[in-house]
């Protein structure tokens, strides 16, 4: 038996709500009867049920969060739709997240969200260290991590740090030096990234030969 997450939303007019969700927000109408209209977008199923007491435009019953890479453009696109109005201008809830709120038809509330990754924010996060790191070793790894696609970077950051600390402890040391850091970088990153990392290391004046011939550690 399979279960799907389904949200029940009572609306005055299920068909017009479904039309808005399908036309504006990319949902698909999967089932329609007098009792309910079901729409889904692969992540969530909405069961829109008729309720005469629900008033048209009643806000806040169904709050949908939409991720966007461009807040201004997404807001403009939504506002040209009928029955959509802006209720809160974009605000930064924290440096990495901006939110704005729009009211749609049939009690549908839209929260538009734009999240910024470390590249967009122009930051280089610290390594999640447990041991002591030499400054140059930590700086080198933080810079090298920028070369790794941002979506893989967080897990790479953790794995490289842990690996370097394990290598350090193998020598009964508690300070991670450049040697352990570069070896960890080589051990953890996939082979196809090695040439790029090796040339970046050379540019920093570090000779990568000897580190990158062990293959990767799974």
């Amino acid at each position: 038996m399979n279960f799907v997450i389904s949200v029940i939303h009572a609306v005055a007019d299920p068909i017009s709500a479904a039309t808005f969700l399908c036309n504006a927000l990319g949902f698909k109408n999967t089932c329609q009867s007098t009792e309910a209209v079901i729409v889904e977008n692969g992540a969530i199923a909405l069961r829109l049920v008729p309720d005469n007491t629900a008033r048209q435009g009643d806000g806040g019953c169904l709050n949908l969060e939409l991720q966007t890479r461009n807040m201004a453009q997404a807001t403009a696109e939504l506002l040209v739709l009928p029955d959509v109005s802006l209720i809160a201008q974009p605000v930064a809830v924290n440096p990495a997240r901006v939110e704005s709120r729009l009211q749609g038809p049939q009690g549908i509330l839209i929260t538009l969200v734009q999240e910024f990754n470390e590249d967009e924010l122009g930051i280089i996060p610290p390594l999640p260290t447990s041991l002591i790191w030499n400054e140059d070793a930590e700086d080198c790894i933080r810079q090298m991590l920028r070369l790794i696609p941002v979506s893989f970077r967080e897990s790479a950051r953790i794995r490289i740090t842990e690996r370097a600390e394990m290598l350090t402890a193998e020598e009964a040391e508690i300070t991670v030096t450049m040697n352990f850091a570069v070896q960890a970088l080589a051990d953890v990153t996939p082979l196809f990234q090695h040439p790029m990392l090796m040339s970046a290391l050379r540019q920093r004046g570090i000779d990568p030969s000897g580190y990158f011939d062990r293959g990767t550690v799974s």
Binding site: S130, E165, M166, A169, E170, E171, A172
Partner: peptide, 13 residues
């Protein structure tokens, strides 16, 4: 309030 890698230290010993 520290974390240390146990296995590599043991191996070294």
């Amino acid at each position: 309030d520290i974390a240390l890698p146990w296995w590599p230290l043991l191996r070294h010993v």
